[in-house]
Simulated assay, not measured.
Amino acid sequence: MNKVHQARFFEQIAIMFGRGPKKPTEITERAQQVHELKRMANKVEVRAAILKAHEKPHGNTWRNRRWAFLLAVNLFFVVSFYFDIQILEGSLSASRLIGFHLIDLNSALQVMLAHKHIIVNLVIGTATVLAIWMLLGGRTFCSWVCPYHFVAEFAEKLHLWMAKKKLVSDQPMSRGLRTWFWAIFAFAALGTGYTVFEAISPTGILSRALIYGPGLALLWVAALLLFEVTFSRRAWCRYVCPIGLTYGVVGIVSPVRVKYTLQGCFHEGDCKKVCLVPHVLETVVKGRAVDTEVILGPDCTRCGACVDVCPTGSLKFDIKGLSKIL
């Protein structure tokens, strides 16, 4: 890892914890050459190239794959419980797959902090889940498994429609709040001996409601969705949920990532408009890419929305060490 990439690596970690993106001070020579060529490009020719790129409407390939996988995972819990086939028992917080324990990392952390010691039964399940999400990219859990993420997507569409009609306005908040909430929930578990976050986690609430039936806790989920529709777009995922931060840290060194290629990008910004975490796409802003190929930061959920919407294929999924082989 050269000096430029090393600086960006640590910058992306800081951004994940809430720091705002900054214009890079160090850019590789090859990236500088591409930036300069883009600045000198004929505007008429560029506009013609943009129109040609948009001739073929973008699809929703990755969104459809993601929705299918997310629904399949959550319905597997439902079917296993309903027919008592005991293949997958429990919920997303803690489960057993054919008798093998699987524990959500944030839930495991909450339990161990509440009990103030490492519980042996949690270790194996936690280690297994840790290995899975280190390989796939931690925040892949958010967009490919979490049921709240799924329903929040529809709330987001309603919010954007209402905002366009000027019925509501979006109120952004500091992303640093998520780090503070992570610490608050951790200290709450440590101080009270109770897994406070698990009681209000919409991920756990929806997972249990799907499997065991609805309860009053769904009113809390409805209140969150109403807040996101009327006040702040995707507020829970962006500014509060400690699960996202936990899995973001886990996925820092993940081989599965989204790669940005500077050369073909027209810097239109459509990718940032559809992204749940647009700060990871700061590199697509004209003049911001530190190299001709840049890997998006660990806060990326690997949802594929930016890949679907990019007209030039400048954003693609990539597997470290295998992209040149595949």
Rank of each mutant, 00 (worst) to 15 (best):
M16K: 09
S93Y: 11
L97E: 00
A49C: 05
A68P: 03
T61D: 13
F141Y: 15
L97K: 01
R19Y: 09
H149Y: 15
K43Y: 10
Y82A: 14
W144A: 10
F100C: 03
A31H: 06
H101M: 03
V129I: 10
I98D: 04
T140C: 12
Q32G: 05
A31D: 05
G99Q: 09
I118A: 12
H35D: 05
R96Q: 13
L92N: 06
H117G: 08
V44G: 08
N60M: 02
L37I: 06
A49W: 01
I27S: 05
A108K: 03
K22S: 07
V120C: 03
A53L: 12
Y148A: 00
K38W: 00
Y82E: 09
G138C: 12
V111W: 09
Q110M: 14
K52Q: 14
K52R: 13
F83L: 15
S95N: 04
A131I: 06
W133Q: 06
T128C: 05
V120I: 14
M112C: 11
I15S: 05
L51Y: 00
P57N: 03
G90E: 08
E26N: 09
I27E: 07
A108F: 07
A68Y: 04
N74M: 10
N64Y: 13
L102N: 09
A131N: 03
H54F: 09
A108W: 09
E55Q: 13
A68Q: 06
Y148L: 02
I124M: 02
S93V: 10
L105Q: 04
A41D: 08
H54N: 14
Y148C: 00
V151K: 00
C142G: 02
L105S: 07
A41G: 04
A114P: 01
T128H: 01
A53D: 08
S143C: 08
H54R: 14
T28L: 15
Y148G: 01
F77K: 09
G137Q: 03
G59F: 14
A127H: 02
K38Y: 00
A49H: 02
A94W: 08
L105W: 04
V73W: 06
F81K: 15
L102R: 10
T25A: 12
S143R: 07
G125D: 00
Y148P: 00
D84I: 03
L130C: 06
I124K: 02
A68I: 11
R139F: 10
I27N: 05
A131H: 03
R19Q: 11
H58E: 01
L37G: 06
M112A: 07
I132S: 07
G59N: 13
T25H: 12
S91M: 07
F141D: 05
E55Y: 11
G99R: 08
F141V: 12
F83D: 06
R66D: 12
L136K: 14
K22C: 04
G137K: 01
E29R: 13
R19P: 00
W67E: 05
G137R: 01
A31Q: 08
F77A: 09
L97D: 01
W144F: 09
L122K: 05
H117Y: 14
T140Y: 14
G18M: 03
F81R: 15
V73D: 01
S91T: 15
E55G: 11
L122C: 04
A31R: 02
F17E: 04
A31V: 04
V46S: 10
P21R: 10
A31S: 12
W144C: 06
S91Y: 09
I87L: 15
A127E: 02
T25G: 13
E89G: 05
I124V: 05
G125W: 07
F141N: 08
